[in-house]
């Protein structure tokens, strides 16, 4: 017999071993998230999916579902906190949506809209982060990396290459590339690799093309992220 918890008062069934996020997704309920992708082991790093489980804050992507638990998700309080988290992500890097190729197909941007973020309220850090365009097929714009580690997990778990890793700690944390020069062009990344197309933001993008999808036809132009889902759900459409 299936167990249940309630998500904002709605009964959500789950199987033993499922997380709150797994069960909510299976039930068609949306819990905002960035670093989570059901293809890969949950990571719990972005904290955007933080919900209240019986009054305690937990990451929905890593917290096991509990029978009879009450889970709060879409509340003003949590939405405010998520908006703050998103603002911190925006000001840590250089996320210039108006000129970004990923605009309209970007989970960070779509989630910011969903959470009602109109502008970052914190002081921008404006870090200086040169691009790595050494690979023939892809460019990495470190300005837009949100350290979700999806590329790290995809390269390690799906591609078996471990091209990517996070180096440094705290504010010094950054995406590093496993190659003799530290450049993507010297790495083993292949254009068919899952790691090459898993980025939910505009950090890893194909080269020589941009803005190919007209405004109005991009993934999040017509539907909010809560309905349209993740970029990975639409790989062919959003690449």
């Amino acid at each position: 017999m299936l167990k249940h918890f309630t998500l904002d008062g709605k009964r959500i069934p789950f199987a033993e071993g499922q997380t709150i996020m797994d069960a909510a997704m299976a039930a068609g309920e949306y819990i905002p998230h960035l670093c989570h992708n059901p293809e890969f082991a949950p990571h719990g790093s972005c904290r955007v999916c933080t919900v209240k489980l019986n009054g305690r804050r937990v990451a929905a992507c890593t917290a096991p579902a509990l029978d009879g638990a009450e889970v709060e998700n879409d509340t003003d309080e949590l939405r405010d906190e998520r908006r703050t988290l998103l603002q911190l992500l925006f000001i840590e890097g250089n996320h210039i949506c108006p000129a970004c190729d990923k605009s309209g197909n970007c989970q960070l941007q779509a989630l910011a809209y969903y959470c009602g973020m109109t502008a970052p309220e914190f002081t921008h850090r404006y870090p200086l982060r040169p691009l790595d365009a050494s690979h023939p097929d892809f460019v990495i714009d470190f300005n837009r990396c949100i350290l979700c580690e999806l590329c790290v997990r995809a390269s390690r778990d799906a591609d078996g290459k471990s091209v990517f890793a996070i180096h440094g700690r705290g504010i010094q944390a950054h995406l590093a590339i496993d190659s003799p020069s530290g450049k993507l062009g010297d790495s083993k990344l292949h254009k068919e690799d899952r790691a090459a197309s898993v980025c939910p933001v505009g950090a890893i993008l194909p080269k020589h093309t941009g803005y190919a999808v007209p405004i109005g036809e991009r993934l999040y132009d017509r539907k909010p992220i809560s309905v349209a889902g993740d970029v990975s759900d639409h790989r062919k459409d959003s690449s």
């Binding site: 108006p98 000129a99 190729d101 691009l131 080269k207 093309t209 941009g210 803005y211």
Partner: peptide
């Protein structure tokens, strides 16, 4: 400088 060329038409229109 340092930006990809394919961004230019969208970037510089600002």
């Amino acid at each position: 400088q340092g930006r990809p060329y394919w961004e230019l038409p969208v970037l510089v229109q600002r």
